[in-house]
Design a protein around this nucleic acid. Structure first.
Lengths: 206, 206
DNA sequence: ATATGTGAAATCTTTCACAGCG
DNA sequence: CGCTGTGAAAGATTTCACATAT
């Protein structure tokens, strides 16, 4: 929110804190400590306290943290105490699976438009959405004011799609294509690439 | 390979180097420099040189790096100059999409078994595999010697599945369930969670 | 008694800058 | 000359440890 100069690495940990606290909430846990939270996530208690202290004083000395209060604060910090509309580009296998995935809605993310350039896919229904012609994407997305996009097209098409999304005013891109995207300053990209995650593990396998 | 004590953060960058070099290879580029590679990935040339120097002297002073040679070395380092069999647990929407994804094969990863506990799914064909009964998983996986697993079951079932995979001898888990897994020392987990990636970006959106 | 918030210390990571080699 | 490999310096991150509040 009114954060001055928080390191990226701190921000990158907050969603995991939130996720874990939301699970606690569901389990009926009202209060926790940096120690307990750290044990669940696998990081040190001191790190959690330091991270949170960047944003305010959320705990009570001797008592710990109210789970409800901390969830609320983290949602505000991460800007997820509202809902976000999302445009999905690429209606192939992966695009279908993601469009049908129920997990987004529970967290305030809602896919509201799907595009593809393949005439065989345009017009198809996915859930209650209809795949639209990618040629109209820039105009429709810009008019909608959507700020978040997902790319599920093949690697060779991904950079061109990213360029169009940027042209349409998108500021955050979740990229499922196995290629590194280049975007202007101020546009955020997160890369979801299972091959890369697998290779990070096979390194350690004899 | 014969690596002494390489920081995790260095290892985590190597797959991206490899991916980028493989793209260069496809484009017919025979030689590159730490500068060029860094520009493509978005990190400094010095960092790439330092990272690579942990494993050997792969470049030629004044000339740069042979793309083919570096690809080969990185594949050896990451243990991906061989193929890896994978077991997939969870044959729902997401499991189907992942099982049908063609990208793994090109990188030496091959899904060879799929399990689910839902009688409606057991026996179903996905590609040329048949969904098997999760009750038999531990025995079948252990007998197969498979070391890498993927979890695509709902959050509430994921920890139990992880425990079984560990029992079956799995050493690396790619977790698509939106929950933090606890595993014994020596077992590696990578978490693929789109919600977390989205929240890492919404922080920065006004 | 207990657990936070936080300066200071320790550790880790990145960048600098240049010797050295093709 | 051009670019690597690398010690040393700079910078970033994590941990320590304790004063402080309940």
């Amino acid at each position: 929110m009114i954060a001055k100069d928080i390191p990226d690495i701190v921000v990158s940990r907050l969603p995991r804190y939130l996720q874990t606290l939301e699970h606690m909430q569901k389990d009926g846990i009202r209060t926790t400590s940096s120690q307990e939270l750290g044990d669940l996530i696998g990081i040190s208690a001191a790190q959690i306290r330091k991270d949170l202290s960047q944003f305010g004083e959320f705990g009570k000395q001797g008592k710990g943290y109210s789970v409800d209060f901390l969830v609320d604060q983290l949602r505000q910090i991460l800007n997820v105490n509202r809902s976000w509309d999302i445009v999905l580009v690429g209606a192939g296998n992966l695009g279908h699976a993601i469009a049908n995935y129920q997990g987004f809605g529970n967290h305030g993310f809602s896919i509201v438009m799907i595009f593809d350039s393949d005439p065989a896919l345009i017009g198809q229904k996915i859930g209650n959405l209809t795949v639209q012609d990618a040629a109209q994407m820039v105009d429709l997305v810009r008019a909608s004011g959507i700020k978040v996009g997902m790319i599920t097209v093949p690697a060779q098409a991904a950079q061109a799609v990213a360029d169009e999304l940027v042209k349409a005013g998108i500021q955050a891109i979740l990229n499922y294509a196995p290629i590194n995207l280049t975007v202007p300053e101020g546009v955020h990209v997160q890369h979801v690439d299972p091959i890369i995650y697998l290779q990070r593990m096979t390194y350690y396998l004899a």
